[in-house]
Design a protein around this nucleic acid. Structure first.
Lengths: 130, 130
DNA sequence: TTCCATGGTTACCTTGAGGTGCCTACTTGA
DNA sequence: TCAAGTAGGCACCTCAAGGTAACCATGGAA
């Protein structure tokens, strides 16, 4: 009935690991943007509202080391660099797309929760049990 | 062809918001555990390897404020408290289950990436472009 | 000869998420 | 009278994620 198996949510649980990977602030966004096709850094910055140059480079460097992203340099001037997904990266689109699809269908609910989250960072029970 | 729409990944993008919600360390795990049925804190701690008492309470309190989790107190002694998902919480199972399912099918890939991640926290280009 | 665009690197700093430990309150049982 | 189990609050601390800003190298345009 419930859709999730009873597997322990332990440190070696792949679900937990995946969430840990995807919880790095710019990772899902970057994979998402690159899923639209190979991109130059400038373009990526334009599409990822709010990312700084440092975080862009850093996250790309990480994804590169993980084998998720490929960096291609064209030896011209001014420098021309392009980032694209590796086959492994292409695979990672799927879970992101799944979440994306769900998020689109449940905008209102997310907005509701997200609003609550913003207004009460410090946890506080709103209505006290009597 | 590509499964993700061209919607900007901006601050109001529900996908981004959802990832932000789910990236809180214990949130997916807690929703997952509660998806197995209402649970008492002791039981939850047992199932969520590594969570501290403080983080359990804090995360539960947050989820409660967001309307995702319901807290029920039975006035007996010793105290008996139970946490369960609200209808909204039940809805949130779905994206988590989707990621969960994908993670199960792609354990090896995740392990590969996750391993890389652990060995190189500080980003460093492994092979230099010549 | 100064400026711009490109793609980075580096040092520095702040913030807050998350961890540890100790305290309370209640009642039952040894 | 003291321990133990239950639920949780509170103070404190640390580490690292992530932000800002300045700097470098290059060559063509103005």
């Amino acid at each position: 009935m419930r859709p999730i198996s009873k597997e322990e949510y332990d440190l070696k649980c792949s679900t937990r690991q995946l969430f840990e990977l995807l919880s790095e602030k710019w990772v899902p966004g970057l994979i998402y943007v690159l899923s639209l096709g190979p991109q130059r850094p400038g373009k990526i910055t334009g599409r990822l509202q709010g990312i700084s140059k440092k975080m862009l480079t850093q996250t790309l460097r990480n994804l590169e080391n993980w084998g998720v992203v490929k960096r291609t340099v064209y030896d011209v001037v001014p420098p021309h660099v392009e980032y694209s997904l590796t086959p492994l990266g292409e695979k990672m689109i799927e879970p992101i797309a799944l979440v994306h699809g769900w998020a689109q269908e449940n905008r209102e609910d997310i907005a509701k929760v997200f609003g609550q989250r913003l207004t009460s960072k410090k946890p506080e029970r709103l209505t006290d049990q009597e």
